[in-house]
Design a protein around this nucleic acid. Sequence first.
DNA 1: TTTACAATGGTTAACGTTAATCCTGGATAC
DNA 2: GTATCCAGGATTAACGTTAACCATTGTAAA
Lengths: 335, 335
Amino acid sequence: MNTLMKDIAQATGFSINTVSRALRDDRKISKRTRELIRAKADAMGYIHNAIAANMRCLQSKVIGVISKDSSNPFFAEVVRGIEERAREHGYNMLLVNTEEDAQRERDYVRLFVSRHVDGLLVVPGYQCQENLQLYKSLSIPFCFVGRRVQGIEGHSLLHQDYESQLEVSSYLIANGHRRMLYLAGPENLSNSADRLNGHLKALENAGIALDPSLIIHTRGHIEEGYASVNLALNRGIRFSVITCFNDLLAMGALKSLSENGCQVPKDVEVFGFDNLYISQFMQPSLSTVDVPKFALGVSAVDELLRHIERRDLEYKDLNLETRLIYRGSTLNRGL
Amino acid sequence: MNTLMKDIAQATGFSINTVSRALRDDRKISKRTRELIRAKADAMGYIHNAIAANMRCLQSKVIGVISKDSSNPFFAEVVRGIEERAREHGYNMLLVNTEEDAQRERDYVRLFVSRHVDGLLVVPGYQCQENLQLYKSLSIPFCFVGRRVQGIEGHSLLHQDYESQLEVSSYLIANGHRRMLYLAGPENLSNSADRLNGHLKALENAGIALDPSLIIHTRGHIEEGYASVNLALNRGIRFSVITCFNDLLAMGALKSLSENGCQVPKDVEVFGFDNLYISQFMQPSLSTVDVPKFALGVSAVDELLRHIERRDLEYKDLNLETRLIYRGSTLNRGL
DNA sequence: TTTACAATGGTTAACGTTAATCCTGGATAC
DNA sequence: GTATCCAGGATTAACGTTAACCATTGTAAA
């Protein structure tokens, strides 16, 4: 049987009332009594019953995080930022993964509401009507991390997806590339659309007609980067650079190029997106867009806590800055 | 204000009792009534209050997972296995990360107990007396994933750390290597010790005297693999193969070797451990020990649920099988 | 007609903690 | 000597759901 407050009260002779107050650092309890009760609680192995407490009072000091995929290094770093910052503010983080399943996303939102978290950070998956409705009716503070949900304005923490890809593609065009293979991300995801649009805008700016065979849609997995480039090479599609929705695709692309005897960056240049920690260890190391992943998590917590503390605050989108990183997978142009 | 059962009762005309039973699929409620109540609950946006329910009844259908580090791809795959299997059994998984901090590990154990999870899966960090005491006094079912805790017998799901490293090192010795650089993992961690011991045993079996300069201790991070090999090369330490505590170290090693003009596997062979998904995408692809990460998560859930369902069951350690995978970072010997 | 059962309702106690309210006795201040 | 303050206690209601128990109605079987 677990130790309860009433057991501690019995053991120390104080009332259950005083025990509760002592453990909560209520100022009405003298230091001596408080320490005495604390010591006894520790000795008896007392663990506070958050469920019962939560029943009475509003806050749980827990924020729920719904991520996409634990094995995606991008979100792993975001989650680290969230967890660190939450702890700094005295909150705990509880994490679940949707694997991009909309049904699961809904289930988890309900799980967290059901278990009374104080707020919710979500990496939303594909758009769907049911989820939109759920978010619209959500009664606790929430923010979207790294992605938007169409129909819910102001709740998103974003990074410069459109702007960065525009910059990357423009840079490549400025350096003479005309046939650029673009490995796109999952459709129906705000990032994918934003990044792809940046790429298309760069083409348009340069007056380059779009060749549809140079856009390959993927779900953003590493093995698809490999397979897509294999496919493109087998089909005889010509290109002088591959620019990718994310670093994972770029890594897959590197492997395919290497196996097909294409030298990077001499024959084909490769550009990623995200700047995963591991990208610098690829051979060649990957040129990419640095997305501030840890900072994204930190900002998300800050923003969420603002809304937890002041429920009437208006929501507004935030757009974090990115920067281009040139490494071994592109030609060194003496930047 | 959130919708409560009493609101649904009021709206449908049924008693709060019947509503509760209908939502819980109690057989005493007719299908017609149940569906009617369900529909109304959905329409009113009712979300079950797990906190209140948990107060009354014992189980929460939630298992807590305390992992090491969200940005370590090894545990990410284990977590995927846990989450999938838990869902198959109607359980939810809540995850936290300790970043190998013993204090945090303790805090999180208490958090989960405090929030009434039905069971706990833990990737335990460094041994320490306080944590040992905590586990000894823990009143809910728990298992350790991938590591042991000295003093707590029978609670661990392991993989063949000792046996596999013994096999790797023996294989390398059989192929003529005498000076093998070993990049060891964090001290005070059961895996590190097991794997290192396997290596030492192989040396002993072959009658090779241990050269302490060939053992480098690290915390298992990729950048340490890079730095350690740089250091060894700078110091003029001679070796013909590098065998590593994990794949991350091996990846760092690959980068250092490449930058120092050593060809892999011609000049130096490299062996990893874990078989991370990404390891096959390295250049050269990494020879390694395949640890069944997903299966480890699955087994952990199965084992934990057995103990959740039958609290009197005796605990016993499980040791999952591994296998060696030979890829491009070692010489192809026509296996 | 009697018996039995299924579907439902009502009532009530319980889970462990918190917090509000009121009370007491002793110490300190004026 | 009175007023004030402080540590602490006692009591009680509340949080929302569950579950046990008993009662009621209507229908089907014996």
